[in-house]
Amino acid sequence: MMQQERNCGKSNRVFLLVKSENSKTIWNTEEVPEGSEYDDTWDPREQPEYEILFKQCVGTEDVFFGMSRKDHSTACCEDIVIKIKLPETKNSDITLDIQDKVLDLRTPKKKLLLHLPYSVDSRNGKARFLSEEETLEVTLRVLREFDFINFG
């Protein structure tokens, strides 16, 4: 139960008792930041080096003639490519979980919790491990609400 105070005049105060949705909850769902369920501050594994690249498909009409509405900003990119350095790691040791705005990577020696700059299509991404370079390359399609208007 929460107590709220309402001022009903000069000196009269009325207290209203407002019942919360679930009396055992500590926070409302709106108060918890997205992706915080993955935070693990007690995990001693180090964070690997990573790089975020933005990728877009352009043709000659975009590059030479400027016929589309695309420009060189990240707002016009279709994909996010995340390159993660994982030295001394085998492909079978990698656990990767991708949500709409969070990438969670775990190996026996490294962990990475990355909050993505845009919402992504978490079901149709691609990941490949380049063993010669000891790098995991994850490609994710960016989802924006009005892309069908801007780039249709």
Rank of each mutant, 00 (worst) to 15 (best):
D79A: 01
S36F: 05
I80Y: 01
L143M: 14
N150S: 15
F15A: 05
N12T: 11
I82H: 05
S23I: 15
K126Q: 05
M1R: 09
S11E: 11
C57Q: 14
N124V: 00
D147F: 12
T25F: 13
E37T: 08
K111C: 12
R141Q: 03
E46M: 10
F65P: 00
P44L: 12
F54E: 04
K83A: 03
L143Y: 07
V18F: 05
W42N: 15
G125Y: 10
T74W: 02
P44M: 09
W42Q: 14
L140F: 03
L86T: 02
D97T: 06
S11Q: 11
F64V: 11
E88G: 05
T139E: 07
P117L: 06
L17M: 07
E30M: 09
K109R: 07
E133N: 12
P33A: 01
L103S: 06
S20K: 15
R144N: 07
E34W: 02
R123I: 01
L86H: 00
T95I: 11
T107H: 06
P117Q: 04
E30V: 10
I94W: 07
Y118N: 01
V63K: 00
L16V: 14
V120G: 04
T29D: 13
K90G: 11
L17P: 00
I52D: 05
K101Q: 15
E37M: 08
F148R: 07
D97I: 04
T29V: 08
V120F: 00
L105M: 15
G35Y: 02
T95F: 10
T135G: 06
T135C: 12
S11T: 14
L114N: 01
D43A: 03
S92R: 10
E37K: 09
E31T: 06
D147G: 05
G35T: 01
D121H: 02
K126H: 03
R45F: 00
D40L: 07
L136S: 02
I26Y: 09
L16Q: 13
K126T: 10
R13T: 10
L143C: 10
V81N: 03
D71C: 12
S68Y: 11
N12M: 13
L96T: 05
H115M: 03
F64Q: 09
E88K: 13
G66F: 13
F54K: 02
S122A: 13
W42I: 07
N28F: 12
V120D: 09
R69T: 15
R69D: 14
V58L: 10
K24V: 08
T95R: 14
E30S: 15
N91L: 08
R6Y: 03
L140A: 01
V81M: 01
N124A: 00
P48T: 01
T135V: 12
D104T: 02
A127D: 12
D93R: 05
E31A: 13
I84D: 04
E132K: 10
T29M: 07
L136M: 06
K24A: 13
C76A: 12
L17R: 11
D147P: 08
Q4D: 14
N22W: 06
P87W: 03
S11C: 11
K24P: 00
P33E: 04
E49Y: 08
Q47N: 08
R144H: 08
R13L: 15
F65E: 09
C76P: 04
V142L: 06
L130G: 07
K110W: 04
R123P: 03
T60R: 07
P117G: 05
V102K: 00
N22I: 09
T29A: 13
F65M: 12
E61M: 09
V14N: 05
S119R: 11
E46K: 14
